[in-house]
Structures are given as structure tokens and as C-alpha cells.
Design a protein around this nucleic acid. Sequence first.
DNA 1: CTTATTGTGATTATCTGAGTGAACAGCTGT
DNA 2: ACAGCTGTTCACTCAGATAATCACAATAAG
Lengths: 263, 263
Amino acid sequence: MSFNDSDDPRSTAVEQLEAFGLSAYAARTFVALTGLGEGTAKDVSALAEVPRTRVYDATAELREHGLVDVQQSSPKRFTAVSAETTGRRFRREYTRRADLLAEALDEIEPVTPNTEQRGVWTVTGREMVSDRVVEFVDDASEEVVLVTLEALLTDDVVDALGTAADRGVAVRVSGMDFSAGDEEGGRLPDGCGFESPRAWSGVPAGRLLMVDRRRTLASVLVDGNGEHPPSARDETAIWGAGETNSLVVVLKAMFSWLNGDLG
Amino acid sequence: MSFNDSDDPRSTAVEQLEAFGLSAYAARTFVALTGLGEGTAKDVSALAEVPRTRVYDATAELREHGLVDVQQSSPKRFTAVSAETTGRRFRREYTRRADLLAEALDEIEPVTPNTEQRGVWTVTGREMVSDRVVEFVDDASEEVVLVTLEALLTDDVVDALGTAADRGVAVRVSGMDFSAGDEEGGRLPDGCGFESPRAWSGVPAGRLLMVDRRRTLASVLVDGNGEHPPSARDETAIWGAGETNSLVVVLKAMFSWLNGDLG
DNA sequence: CTTATTGTGATTATCTGAGTGAACAGCTGT
DNA sequence: ACAGCTGTTCACTCAGATAATCACAATAAG
């Protein structure tokens, strides 16, 4: 009868609504009302397979979120707001939450004057690695050296490099697999030096990053086998911080050897 | 010892993290790690009041979200990403969710050619009412007439009025309490006719909206007594759609009487 | 080698929410 | 007015998830 398949719009809608904190009944009720446009508890119960007697709770919950309007008649009639309004509501609410969270965490964060660290940290997942790259580049005060595959140079990273360059940081980017070697210069913001691939051909594909010679990151792409999310779990990185950190020392040496002028 | 008060940054952070779908342990673990910068399971357990043996699960959960990095040593050491990165991650994830949701709902939405409706719908909450106003104005094809308190003319509403005017809709806005009567002209986008308050002085304060003479909304501000959220639950609106809808008929008449030229 | 500490897994307790049914109120048609 | 029906609310059970505790294996330090 009704597909519970993955790409069914109703399933995805329910899934996302539940992610936004709604109960299962409320989510199913809402998609049913969206399909009906307007209906009674009975209608909803039939279409959403929600017990009729709980439709009232579900609609009350939805009303609190401003997603459903009620007609005070007998039988009560319910209607769902438009798709655009729903999207706008949740977008607004959750960006506000994210701002609140970042603000609160900022107050908690201790003053960490680039602590010297002994060990090496690990990250997995392409997005997660990109986040670390952005975070470290945002912290840069003097110098950024980045060697990366073209495919990993996402907008986030490019933006971070741009703002770093704007505040006077010496930014140098080099590609591992840029075919022409210079066509990528256009994607980089002003102030970012770009260098054609030199000796990087033999280096395992991924990224290499060095920030202020005190913080380094190295990543490789791996086959996404054996991981549940079919994609995006396909990059593994290690990073370290501090002048004497072993990874920092090694990567500093690598950059020096392969790119003589970095001393 | 530790405040569980409302405006404690740690409490708000935990609260928001849980809203983003993290378990209580994961949320507390994350704020503890943010405060520590770096620490072992023991450290976290002491500070976050999470059983030590559960810190490993909590950090695993956080790692899946890309919020924590792990040092593969014994004892394992954990570190939390920066506040900015955290905010960015969740902002991105949940705006994507909102987009997905809106898209899925859009596919479900039936072709509702401005159905004729008999009843009158109710909405409460200032934001919710604003959402309806925006929704209806976005639907306008010919004419929008809005009478509103100045305080209720939020950016959302102004934007909606602007885009409506841009696509050729005749937009007319009038104020109930604008002191000078014309100083608000600047806030309104081009193409929106603004009229000084005329006979609106006696009308209960709130908003009146008429779209294409087929859909109307009326709201009043009420004291937020007896409602749990101390504010924002302070506006109550009713709306209706359809040429013969009683509320539409009444408000059409009101607009005509009070503003002769709308016949 | 011994001991304290760390990591992993299994186990139990608690709680929220899904699902069900009974009781009450209100409308409708005779 | 009455009876039957529909609509609404409330109270209860059950299941799944999460929190919390414990027992044991692995590791590091002395």
C-alpha cells in the first residue's frame, strides 16, 4: 500500500520532522494534513495510521510549533501550514539554536594559548576533516601552507583561506592533482599564493596542512568499505599541535625537503 | 556546587545539544571537554558527572557527529572542536534538513486552487501569526491590504511585501499607531503604498490583512497571562479563505467602510 | 611480578512515548 | 425528548531507548 521506501517524500518528511524533535504521531499527522490540505481527526487517522484518539494530542503538539491551525467546530478541522513556511520556521529556530550553542560554548572555552601537545589526534569523515582544516586556518596568525586534492577544496576551505589572507597571513596553496596546474588560481581568493604541483606526485593523495609551523594535519582518502554511511566516511586524518609534536616535526621536515624554500 | 540555573552557559549548551539530538551523556561530555580543552575519560567523568565507563560511548557518539577527536593512546585522550566549528556544523546540518523537509512536503502538497472554505481558523503566538501573514502575502497575485501595529511589522513581513510588490501585486499598508504617520514609509520596500492612519484609531490593536479579497486575517494582542512561555504567546489571530467565507465577507466590508475607495 | 588504572562488554533500572481501550460529552435524526 | 452515534478526553499497558551499575579483561607503572 504505502511505500516505506527511502525516497518516498512522505518517509523523508517524517524522518526530518522527527529529527526536529516532533513525536512520531505528530510527524505522521503533519504529513497527512499536508497531503489533505484540511481534514478532521478521522481523516488524519485513516491516512496517517495514527490512532484517532491521539490525533488531538498530535495536533496540539504541532500547534505549539505553529505548524497547524485549528477550526473550533464540531468536528474540529485541522490544516497544515505550507511547505515553505514549515521550512522557514525550522530553519529559523535551529539557526537560532546553533547561535545560542556557539555563544554558550564560547563562554565555557578556556583560554588555551596554543597548548603544547604530545600526541596525535585522529578524525574521520570528509566533512569532519574539512571542519578541522577551517578551524586551524581560522586560527592562523602568520603562515598557512596547504597541499590538497582539488576535490577537497570546498567552499568552506576557500573562504577560510580568503579571510586568513585578508588579515595578513601568508597563505600558500599547492595542488596534488590539478591537471593544468594553474587553472585553479581563479578559485582562490586574492592574497593566496598558488603553486603548481611539483614533487607531490608521489605523496599519498589527500591533504597536508601546516599552520604557523605549530600545527599540522595530514589526511588520506580511503575506500569507504565497511562503513555504514556509504560515502563521506572516506577520509581519515591525523593532526597535532606544538613545536615539538612529532607529527608537526615530521611534516615540517617534509615541507622543507619537498619545497626547499621553507627552511 | 554547579548551578543548574537557567542562564548558566553550561546548562544552555547542554540544552541546545540535546535539542540537536545528542544524548544527555554526550551533551554533558561535550561541554566538559569544551571546558577542559583536552582530557581523559576520568577527567570528563569527574567534571561532567557522567559514569566513567559511559564516557567512551558518549565520545563515540560525539565522534560520529565530528565534534570530538580521539588520541589512540592509553589512557585515551579526547578533545572537543571549537565553539565556532560546532555552531557551523549544526547550522549546516539543520538548514540542510529544513531544505530536505520543505522539498519533500512540496511534493506531497496537493494542488489546492484556493479552496473555498467555510470555517474560521485560529492561530496563537506572534511568530506563528507573522508566518501566516507571510504565507498569505506570498500567495497574493493581485492585491494586498495590510493594517498593522508598527511593532508587528517584522523583517519577514516587510520582505514578503517587497517581493509581492516586485511581481506586480498592488500592496497597500496602513499603520494603526504610527505616530508621525509617514516615518514608516522608509521601512517599506518600493512599490508598497503607505497610508497614514485614518479611521483605525478605534479598531482593537493588532493586524488586519486582506489578500486578493479572497483571504483575510485579523489579530489582536492579548496579555500573556496563563500561558507557559512568558512572551510571544501574546497574539491571537483568526483567518479564513474563500469568497463566501464569513470572516472574509466581514473584513471586506470593514475595509470598504473605513476606507471608502476599496468598494 | 604485582597492583592500580583503563577499556569493554554485559546487566539492570528508569523513563518516555507508542498503542489500546474505556468513559464522557455533544450532536443528529427520528 | 430520546436514542444512537460521532467526537473528545482520560487512564492504562507495553515496548524501546537511555541512564546507571557491575564484572571482567587489557594495559601501564612501580
